[in-house]
């Protein structure tokens, strides 16, 4: 009899231990599933593909996107806030992340500010340029002061070349346009410039 009670007690103990282990595993040891929604714009290829993806917490997701058209540049946005170039990685710290990738289109109106290295040269007042063209890699631009030029955006390298303003050439990256300063030369002088998108 005693032996029987003892057997039941052992079984109960085993069940309790098993339940406790399950609770511990579900609470601490097993990472939850997190969703990553990927949205790819027109002309973008790469991985992860467009759609819903599930990863474990703390998984590192490597992304790599390329433009379908030669010379175009990709920008990637995480939750519409964190911006990155076409290749990189994210860590799944949370659920419901949204990753979008699109081709950068610099066409539009920008306010340009020049700053000369030579402090004795007075920079012009900030001026607006309107960038236009048949595609996202080249075209023409007009300057509100009456100047004109051509632009090319070959694989993230952006050149704005005036043909009627004293050999002025403005260089930057497509990805950096509006965020990082570029460099310029003109009249035999040089300096840096920034651009701010107006429309």
């Amino acid at each position: 009899m005693d032996l029987g009670i003892s057997k039941i007690s052992n079984k109960c103990r085993m069940i309790w231990i098993g339940l406790a282990a399950l609770v511990w595993l579900s609470g601490c040891g097993v990472a939850p599933d997190f969703v990553l929604n990927v949205s790819l714009g027109e002309g973008v290829t790469g991985t992860p593909e467009d759609g819903r993806h599930v990863y474990k917490e703390f998984d590192t997701v490597t992304f790599d996107y390329k433009p379908q058209n030669v010379g175009e540049t990709i920008e990637v946005l995480l939750n519409n806030r964190i911006r990155s170039e076409g290749s990189g990685s994210i860590i799944m710290y949370g659920d419901g992340y949204n990753l979008s990738a699109r081709v950068i289109d610099i066409r539009g109106v920008w306010k340009v500010t020049l700053s000369y290295i030579d402090g004795s040269v007075a920079a012009p007042e900030p001026f607006r340029i309107t960038i236009s063209g048949p595609d996202k890699v080249s075209g023409v631009f007009t300057d509100e002061r009456g100047y004109n030029g051509t632009w090319t955006a070959a694989s993230n390298s952006l050149w704005l070349v005036y043909y009627d303003w004293e050999f002025y050439v403005l260089r930057t990256t497509v990805f950096g346009m509006g965020n990082q300063p570029g460099s310029f030369t003109g009249e035999g002088l040089s300096g840096s410039w920034t651009a701010e998108r107006v429309s």
Binding site: N148, T150, V161, Y163, D164, E166, F167, V169, E187, G188
Partner: peptide, 17 residues
């Protein structure tokens, strides 16, 4: 070294040569 473009019937100046 490429220095820039110049349109037709225009004169551009390079300073500090």
């Amino acid at each position: 070294t490429y220095i820039g473009d110049i349109g037709d019937n225009l004169t551009h100046t390079l300073r500090k040569i």
